[in-house]
Computed example of a mutant assay.
Amino acid sequence: MDGSDSFDTWHTLLVGVFAWSAVFVVLRKIMWNRSFDFCNRLVSMLHVGVALWLSSASIKDWRHPIHPLASPSSPLQIRALAVSLSYFMYDSICCLFETPISISNCIHHTVSILGLLGGIYYGVCGSELVGCLWLMEISNPFMHMRELLKELGYKDSDLSLVNDICFALIFSIARLIMGPYLTYLTLTAINPFIIKATAFGLQVVSIFWFYKIVRMVYYKLSKRNRMGPKVS
């Protein structure tokens, strides 16, 4: 990136961190009777929409969405990466208030931040990074909704079960079918080492989370069979 582009990118990053934090503060004021995690997940849901919109808008050719590989990033791709990087920086701070702190979540945030920083710094592999961002976010609404439903009192409802099944299916397709293919392309293309390392790291985290999701769905289905369905 040249000087002007670099200034615009870091300006977007700083404004983004402030904006996500401001939205959270407003939600905490409005929803004073809801938990810290509840309000933070609403911010995360907002980020999902923004990230998917910016990522989709930056794709050059939907017939070949992750091509050309290892190519210079477009301004739209850089903007998508910068906005999501600002969110991950905000959310990393929020994660420090979790009790207990989730180690896997911290690793995921660290790897994501390093990958996005690397993509912005080198100004290449925008297609791969935007594709990765899209795959990471597509299942997140269901993940966040799972925790929101718990706090709203729908933990064992039919709605919660359907949401969990949708989460497991979409996560599996995005992270365990499409994800490994994107990781392979990223590792075999002429990309900076930091991009390759973070791509591999995210895939490892995805496999670990897949294992936890399978256990979660199995537990809920087993519990439903033992107790019988509840009315939503």
Results as ranks from 00 to 15, higher is better:
Pro141His: 00
Met136Cys: 13
Ser139Lys: 04
His108Gln: 09
Asn140Met: 07
Leu116Cys: 10
Ile93Asn: 09
Leu116Pro: 10
His108Ile: 11
Gly123Leu: 06
Cys94Val: 04
Ser104Met: 02
Thr110Ala: 15
Ser92Trp: 07
Leu96Gly: 10
Val124Gln: 03
Trp134His: 05
Ser102Glu: 14
Phe88Thr: 13
Pro141Gly: 00
Leu129Lys: 02
Ser92Pro: 03
Glu98Lys: 11
Gly123Tyr: 09
Gly119Phe: 13
Cys95Thr: 12
Asp91Phe: 08
Ile103Leu: 15
Phe97Val: 06
Val111Leu: 09
Cys106Asn: 15
Ser102Gly: 08
Val124Arg: 05
Thr99Ser: 13
Gly131Gln: 06
Ile120Pro: 01
Ser86Tyr: 02
Cys94Tyr: 00
Gly126Thr: 01
Glu98Gly: 10
Ile103Ser: 12
Tyr122Pro: 09
Asn140Ile: 08
Tyr87Ser: 03
Gly115Pro: 04
Ser127Gly: 07
Ile120Asp: 00
Tyr87Phe: 14
Leu96Glu: 13
Pro141Lys: 01
Cys106Pro: 13
Gly115Tyr: 03
Ser112Glu: 08
Phe88Trp: 15
Gly119Pro: 08
Leu114Arg: 11
Leu96His: 12
Cys132Gln: 01
Ile113Ala: 07
Phe88Asp: 10
Gly119His: 06
Glu128Met: 01
Cys95Gln: 12
Val111Cys: 05
Leu114Glu: 10
Tyr121Ala: 07
Glu137Met: 11
Gly123Pro: 07
Asp91Arg: 09
Phe97Arg: 15
His109Ile: 15
Glu128His: 00
Tyr122Val: 08
Asn140Thr: 12
Tyr90Val: 06
Leu133Phe: 09
Ser92Glu: 02
Cys125Gly: 00
Cys95Val: 11
Leu133Gln: 06
Leu129Cys: 04
Met89Ser: 08
Met136Gln: 09
Pro141Val: 02
